[in-house]
Simulated scan of single mutants.
Amino acid sequence: MPEITRDEVAHLADLARIDLSEEELDHLAPQLTVILESVASISAVASEEIPPTSHAIPLTNVFRDDVVVPGLTPEEALSGAPATEEQRFSVPRILGDEQ
């Protein structure tokens, strides 16, 4: 499996909007390579005969019946909001125009 390059780590960090220092980029590249190699080794051992599972024993989730109940009006839902606009919550913008 090819190694993860420092530039690839920088690109991933940029996509995730994570600010990494030069030292962190150098430190993370080999670690990500090891993680991907570990996942690949587990995938190589996986057998078609064994179904994928998330738990060692079967689990059953208990669901309640859906019951229709009256909801809030837009005015009631927005009554405690500090700022609203056209029946919506108004919040400050957190992302720039770069994407």
Results as ranks from 00 to 15, higher is better:
74 P>L: 06
81 A>R: 05
79 S>M: 07
2 P>F: 01
80 G>A: 12
87 Q>E: 14
8 E>G: 01
24 E>F: 00
54 S>N: 13
16 A>C: 10
36 L>W: 11
82 P>S: 13
80 G>I: 05
58 P>F: 01
50 I>V: 15
95 L>W: 09
78 L>Q: 08
56 A>P: 03
92 P>Y: 02
27 H>R: 14
25 L>A: 02
30 P>L: 04
21 S>C: 02
37 E>P: 02
7 D>F: 01
97 D>Q: 10
71 G>V: 08
81 A>D: 09
42 I>A: 14
68 V>Q: 11
36 L>A: 14
15 L>H: 04
61 N>M: 11
77 A>S: 12
90 S>G: 01
85 E>M: 11
73 T>L: 07
25 L>K: 10
91 V>H: 04
47 S>M: 06
26 D>H: 02
93 R>N: 09
81 A>G: 04
33 T>V: 04
99 Q>P: 01
81 A>W: 06
56 A>K: 11
87 Q>A: 14
87 Q>F: 09
4 I>P: 02
31 Q>I: 09
75 E>V: 13
63 F>W: 07
19 D>Q: 12
72 L>W: 08
82 P>R: 14
65 D>A: 15
46 A>C: 12
57 I>C: 05
36 L>K: 13
45 V>N: 09
43 S>W: 04
6 R>W: 00
75 E>K: 15
76 E>V: 08
24 E>S: 02
62 V>F: 05
65 D>L: 11
76 E>P: 07
42 I>N: 11
60 T>F: 03
23 E>Q: 12
83 A>T: 10
55 H>W: 07
8 E>N: 03
55 H>P: 00
26 D>G: 09
64 R>C: 03
86 E>W: 04
61 N>H: 10
6 R>V: 09
44 A>C: 03
22 E>H: 03
83 A>R: 14
18 I>K: 00
5 T>W: 00
97 D>A: 13
90 S>W: 12
71 G>N: 07
4 I>D: 02
43 S>Q: 15
23 E>M: 00
13 A>C: 05
12 L>Y: 04
55 H>N: 13
10 A>F: 00
52 P>T: 10
2 P>Y: 01
93 R>T: 14
93 R>P: 02
46 A>V: 09
38 S>I: 06
27 H>L: 08
28 L>I: 07
86 E>R: 15
50 I>E: 15
52 P>F: 12
47 S>C: 03
80 G>D: 15
36 L>E: 14
26 D>L: 04
52 P>E: 12
30 P>N: 10
36 L>S: 09
52 P>K: 11
44 A>I: 02
28 L>E: 02
13 A>I: 04
58 P>Y: 00
60 T>Y: 03
12 L>N: 02
83 A>M: 10
71 G>I: 07
5 T>D: 01
84 T>K: 06
29 A>L: 06
93 R>G: 06
73 T>E: 05
75 E>G: 07
45 V>S: 13
23 E>T: 08
48 E>D: 15
2 P>T: 13
47 S>T: 15
61 N>S: 11
16 A>I: 01
72 L>E: 13
9 V>P: 01
24 E>K: 02
50 I>L: 14
9 V>H: 00
98 E>P: 00
9 V>A: 03
73 T>Q: 09
84 T>Y: 04
